[in-house]
Design a protein around this nucleic acid. Sequence first.
DNA 1: GCATGGGTAGAATAAACCCTCTACTTCGTC
DNA 2: GACGAAGTAGAGGGTTTATTCTACCCATGC
Lengths: 189, 189
Amino acid sequence: MNNMMIKIAGGLETAFAARGFTEPSVEELRDAAGVSLRTLYKYAPSRDDMVRLALEYRHQRYLSHVFGDPLDAGMQGVNDTLDRVADWMRTEASHGCLFHAAVVSAPNDSCLRGLLERHKAEVSQLAATKAGTDVSTSDLLVIIEGLTQAWPLSKEDALTSAKRLAHLAEAASAEPEPRQDRHQTNRSI
Amino acid sequence: MNNMMIKIAGGLETAFAARGFTEPSVEELRDAAGVSLRTLYKYAPSRDDMVRLALEYRHQRYLSHVFGDPLDAGMQGVNDTLDRVADWMRTEASHGCLFHAAVVSAPNDSCLRGLLERHKAEVSQLAATKAGTDVSTSDLLVIIEGLTQAWPLSKEDALTSAKRLAHLAEAASAEPEPRQDRHQTNRSI
DNA sequence: GCATGGGTAGAATAAACCCTCTACTTCGTC
DNA sequence: GACGAAGTAGAGGGTTTATTCTACCCATGC
């Protein structure tokens, strides 16, 4: 990614984040990117490519915001990770996850779906390995998705709940395997 | 809602669920609804109204799928609720929540946002009151959102995690208030 | 018998949109 | 100073789209 590409990708990302993936016209995207139409099409030969470019850029930014430069060079607990996710929502993504938004705007685009899956897999993986104690990757995925999606609805309450759940999962994984299936799990409806 | 309205709303709902909110043209929606263009516009005077109509219909269907006619006329535990949510995802919404999808497709439409908020508030409220033990509404929102959003990514694993987290939250609410803030909660980034 | 409300089929319109193309400018390098 | 790579500005083509409008059909009740 050279300078021009970064400028374009950044502009596209903010435009899509602010106005969704379907509303902004290419001319609006051009204004957001701050380049001419010709240059825009040079780096992203179609509107779909503009979406992909923006998402790749956002993926990098998200990872470095949530997992980059730890303050104390030591372990980054689940609690810290969730704090950072909430901070990301507060400052950048008050409307929800941009990857889900992109997939939802074009549900049949398998390329976008691939980007979403890779993004989420990498995030939950990183969260799991960064955590000191071992919480399952699947639990972390549910908690982080829950926080991200509930954020626009209940803001800080969502963060509090996500932290509580993560804390409980941590504590449970340290204990010797309690009975979990009191409830019947297969009931027909 | 008379018969014609139900027919139209149902057709619109399946069309939007299958192809997203932006891709289907009004002619495609007409085919899905199985009526003429004129009749379609009579019941939904603009494309946006078609979206709203579909969402209102889906809200009803979701509530009755997840909370309707309990098998044993007694209590519906959180476990049962989550099973039903997963069943809904399995059979109806493999792509995620249609309300979030609608908002994401038109982030500046405050009416849609209102529908989303009312839908989610009602769901988490109902889940909380239906549960035997008391889990906080906020925890339930995070868990249900997490399950719904993680479902397209990890299917049954997401259900297992959601159930485990809900179970832990239940157990914790029964115990006498353990210390929870071991971690520092405010760290600057 | 027939008026009427409510339906169908589909043409017409006006705007929006994606993408291409031409003509011109700027800037660093030999 | 000339040149080429890479940028800007913006008009235009061809297509798609939402919405409206005309013309017609059919059952039901008076």
